Simulated scan of single mutants.
Amino acid sequence: MSEVRWLSEDEQRVWRSFMTAVTRFTEHLDRQLQRDSRMPVAYYEILVALSEAPGRALRMSELAALCHSSRSRLSHAVAKLEKEGWVTRRACPSDRRGSIAELTSEGFAVLEAAAPGHVTAVREHLFDVLSVEQLEALDGISRAISVGLRAECASAKAELGEF
């Protein structure tokens, strides 16, 4: 076992600052969507993914990957969206084991109503508080973190049988 590379004082500060910002930002977006649109940010992300898909429909496995969700968590969320009448599910014609989630007209209308408030919150608390240079740096940083985690996430999901 290799020796632990403990964080320096500066690294600890950056780590805590990063985690605080991500947590507060996500909590703010969730509160805004709950207050204004009766849905958590995870449901909004599902509706967005479906709205951008051809025919506003995706296989559940594809939807889970796009939403960075486990299949079981996604299935639970889609069940709630079905109860609201925002999404329907049907069997996949090419694979009886798979199912397809489809955004309903009502779901699309709910998404259209929720989008302005959500975009305003994102703009006010991310884009408006950072300079162009900071946004470019954030983009690069975010991509580097995602690339660094991509292989590990795929490996972990394969071990759990999620793909």
Rank of each mutant, 00 (worst) to 15 (best):
M1V: 10
M1H: 08
E3C: 02
L7H: 10
R13Q: 13
S17H: 06
M19G: 10
T20W: 00
A21Y: 11
T23Q: 10
R24K: 11
F25Q: 13
H28Q: 10
H28P: 03
Q32V: 15
S37A: 15
A42I: 07
Y44W: 13
L50A: 08
S51G: 09
S51P: 00
A53W: 02
L58P: 01
L58V: 05
R59M: 10
R59Y: 02
E62W: 01
L63N: 07
A64C: 09
A64S: 15
A65M: 08
S70E: 14
R73D: 13
S75I: 03
A77K: 04
K80V: 11
K83Y: 04
W86K: 03
V87P: 03
T88F: 01
R90H: 13
P93M: 04
P93R: 11
I100L: 09
I100S: 04
E102M: 12
E102V: 12
L103Q: 06
L103F: 05
S105W: 01
E106L: 12
F108D: 13
F108V: 01
A109Q: 12
P116A: 04
G117T: 05
H118G: 00
A121Y: 01
V122Q: 05
V122D: 01
E124I: 00
F127H: 12
L130D: 06
V132A: 15
A137K: 06
G140S: 12
S142P: 02
A144G: 11
V147I: 15
R150V: 14
E152K: 09
K157V: 09
A158N: 07
G161F: 06
F163M: 10
